[in-house]
Design a protein around this nucleic acid. Structure first.
Length: 307
RNA sequence: GCAGGGAUAGUGAAGCGGUCAAACACGGGUGACUGUAAAUCAUCUGGCUCAGCCUUCGGGGGUUCGAAUCCCUCUCCCUGCA
């Protein structure tokens, strides 16, 4: 942020090492960050890049609270509907896609807004994660049947230290895949403003309930049924809140009232996990109202254009 | 009215004389987490001046060195006979 070398505008445009400015908005699900982002993007001539692990997928519209077509025509959105549930997008796929979008938006003279609730994916971009290799899927499938104790024993045998979550089978398997290596993270991306949208608990829970009702009224059951029939119900993308909860309903083991209650509960639990994730990110500037965001962005953009 | 059965922590449900602040499940809190992340996992969950102490197992009263566990009685609930 401190290279006041007096680049000419032309030089800056050519210089690929210079990071385009980026505005990031994070927040728990149903916090209203998408609506806020649209407002802000309109106001500051921006475009939105979705950092949501479930809005990549075509067909998962209602349950993921994907922005509507009207919203998407008012502000251009990137990385929504870019794949299908049977072709998942992992963090390591997301990061380059997001960076491409950022560059593309900046090249067209607009302001990129990275907006989403998937903390890991956001971090991958703003902390410039480096990744290790992809795991062997057949080996992974084989390891999935093994107990935690056996996985730990396997690691011990190969002299690989246990991961930070030593009882998490997925982390143990990944550890086995990478030989105990981890990717690296860097400092916060330059020219980046990170904002987090806060929402008070009570207001939030009411929102979740009414949002769930609205989704169900909009035909969520049909959407899920179609997806489950076309893809396998256990495919990773469909392992999403608003989707999995319907499985017992389809097999006659639950009422739609049960489904509703489950979705609400799982959404609230998910939001808690998001809060925990974001809490330790000290780069986030927490805001409650749009005006605060406007202020932060205004000063941010001024500073960036001066450098 | 008679004969049985039951009342256990936020909920469901074990326990049936000491090792019980009480299994387990759910619910809830807190947290971890770089290639499945809307996923996955850990941990706590009666109270406190917390390696110890205090108050709990429908209410009251007994028996016992000792009771959630045995006896008496009261309240409420279910089942069978009236």
């Amino acid at each position: 942020m401190s290279h006041s070398q007096g680049y000419s505008v032309g030089k800056r445009m050519q210089d690929s090492t210079e990071e385009p400015p980026l505005i990031v908005i994070v927040g728990e699900t149903a916090s209203g960050k998408s609506a806020l982002a649209i407002e802000l993007a309109q106001q500051f001539d921006g475009e939105i890049i979705a950092a949501d692990s479930r809005t990549f997928y075509k067909g998962m519209d209602i349950g993921t609270a994907k922005p509507t077509w009207a919203e998407r025509s008012s502000v251009r959105h990137h990385l929504i509907d870019i794949t299908t549930p049977d072709r998942p997008i992992a963090v390591s796929d997301f990061k380059p896609l997001a960076n491409q979008a950022i560059q593309d938006i900046a090249d067209r003279g607009k302001v990129p807004f990275l907006v989403g609730g998937t903390g890991l994916y956001v971090d991958a971009v703003i902390y410039n994660f480096s990744f290790l290799g992809e795991g062997d899927t057949t080996l992974r499938r084989k390891l999935q049947g093994i107990s935690v104790d056996e996985l730990q024993a396997e690691l011990k045998k190969k002299n690989i230290p246990l991961p930070n979550n030593p009882k998490n089978p997925r982390h143990l398997i990944r550890c086995l895949e990478t030989g105990g290596d981890y990717g690296t993270r860097h400092g916060l991306r330059e020219n980046t403003l990170v904002m987090g949208l806060k929402i008070d608990r009570e207001h939030f829970e009411r929102r979740v309930a009414s949002r769930t009702d609205a989704m169900m009224k909009a035909g969520l059951a049909l959407e899920v049924e179609a997806m489950v029939e076309y893809y396998t119900p256990d495919c990773q993308a469909l392992q999403a809140i608003g989707y999995q909860e319907f499985l017992p309903y389809f097999s006659g083991m639950a009422t739609s009232e049960d489904v509703r209650a489950m979705i609400i509960r799982n959404t609230i639990r998910y939001a808690k996990r998001q809060r925990t994730w974001f809490k330790r990110n000290k780069s986030i500037q927490w805001i409650c109202k749009e005006e605060e965001a406007v202020d932060l962005i205004t000063t941010f953009l001024n500073k960036v254009s001066i450098v």
